Deep mutational scan, measured.
Amino acid sequence: SEYETMLTEIMSMGYERERVVAALRASYNNPHRAVEYLLTGIPG
């Protein structure tokens, strides 16, 4: 799925699956924002 592709691409940058899933959830599946959250911390 498109979601799995995003997940895999972000994980390939060296992040753990659960952190990527949390970041995508926080960003409403916006991959650019999710990466930003992984770099700066997930808000909330």
Rank of each mutant, 00 (worst) to 15 (best):
V20I: 06
N29K: 04
P43D: 10
E4V: 08
E36I: 10
M11Q: 04
S27L: 05
E2M: 11
S12R: 11
S1W: 13
A34H: 01
H32E: 15
E16K: 05
T5P: 09
G14R: 02
R19G: 04
E2S: 12
P31A: 10
M13V: 03
A23L: 03
T5N: 12
E16G: 06
Y37I: 13
M6K: 03
P43R: 08
Y3R: 03
M6I: 10
I42F: 13
Y15I: 03
T8N: 14
G44D: 13
A26T: 05
I10T: 01
R19K: 12
G41P: 05
E18L: 07
A26F: 08
S12P: 01
A34Y: 02
T40L: 13
M11R: 02
T40A: 13
I42W: 11
E36G: 04
I10P: 00
T5F: 10
A22E: 14
L7I: 15
L38M: 04
G14M: 03
N29W: 13
H32G: 11
E36F: 11
G44M: 12
A23H: 01
R33A: 12
R25K: 15
R33D: 10
Y3T: 04
V21A: 08
R25P: 01
V20R: 00
N30Q: 07
N29E: 06
T40R: 11
R33T: 11
L7G: 00
Y3V: 05
G14N: 02
E4K: 07
N30D: 15
E2G: 09
L39K: 14
A34T: 04
R17S: 04
M13R: 06
A34S: 02
A26Q: 08
M6S: 04
R17P: 04
L7K: 02
E16L: 06
A22I: 08
R17M: 08
L24I: 04
Y3F: 10
Y3L: 06
L39P: 01
P43K: 09
T8Q: 15
E18R: 05
L38F: 03
R33E: 09
E9W: 15
V20D: 00
S27M: 07
A23Y: 02
E18Q: 08
H32P: 06
V21I: 14
L24K: 00
R17G: 03
P43S: 09
Y15E: 02
Y15W: 10
E16W: 05
E36D: 08
V21Q: 07
L24A: 01
L38S: 00
I10K: 00
E16D: 13
A22P: 02
G44S: 12
T40H: 14
P31F: 15
E9T: 13
L24R: 00
Y28D: 15
S1N: 12
Y15V: 02
T8V: 12
E36V: 09
S27F: 09
P31Q: 09
L7Y: 03
I42S: 08
Y37D: 03
R25A: 14
M13E: 03
P31D: 02
M11Y: 02
S1I: 12
V35I: 15
E36Q: 11
I10G: 01
Y3W: 11
L38D: 00
V21Y: 04
M13I: 05
R25N: 12
E2H: 11
M6R: 04
G41I: 09
M13P: 01
L24Y: 01
Y28K: 15
T40G: 11
I10L: 13
T5Y: 10
N29R: 04
E18M: 07
R25T: 09
N30L: 04
N29M: 10
I10R: 00
E2W: 14
I42E: 09
N29Q: 06
R25G: 07
L38H: 00
P43L: 13
T40M: 13
E18C: 14
P31L: 14
E9G: 08
H32Y: 11
T40V: 09
N30Y: 04
N30T: 04
V35C: 09
S1R: 11
R17V: 05
L39D: 06
E18I: 07
E36P: 00
E2D: 13
S27G: 07
Y28F: 14
Y3E: 04
G41E: 10
V21W: 03
Y37W: 09
P43H: 09
G44I: 13
E16T: 12
R19P: 05
M11S: 04
R17Y: 12
Y3Q: 04
R17T: 04
Y3I: 05
M13A: 04
V21N: 03
E36A: 07
N30F: 03
S27R: 02
M13G: 03
G14E: 02
M11G: 02
S12A: 14
R25Q: 12
L39G: 05
L7R: 01
V20L: 03
P31K: 14
S27W: 05
V35H: 04
A26V: 08
M6N: 05
G14Y: 06
M6W: 11
E4I: 10
M6T: 05
Y37K: 04
R33H: 08
I10M: 07
A34N: 01
L38Q: 00
R33V: 15
T8R: 15
L24H: 00
Y28T: 08
E9V: 12
L39W: 05
E4A: 08
E9R: 13
P31V: 12
S27V: 07
R19W: 10
A26R: 07
G41D: 08
T8I: 14
Y28E: 15
L7S: 01
L7D: 00
A26E: 10
G41W: 11
Y37N: 03
G41L: 09
S12Y: 07
G14S: 02
A22V: 07
L24N: 00
R25C: 15
Y15K: 01
T40F: 14
T40S: 12
L24Q: 00
Y28Q: 15
M6Q: 04
P31T: 06
Y15A: 01
A22T: 06
A22R: 07
Y37P: 00
Y15R: 01
Y3G: 02
V20N: 00
G44A: 13
P31S: 06
Y3D: 04
G41H: 11
E2N: 11
L24P: 00
E4F: 09
R25E: 14
I10H: 01
N29F: 10
A34M: 03
E2T: 10
T8G: 09
G44P: 14
A34C: 03
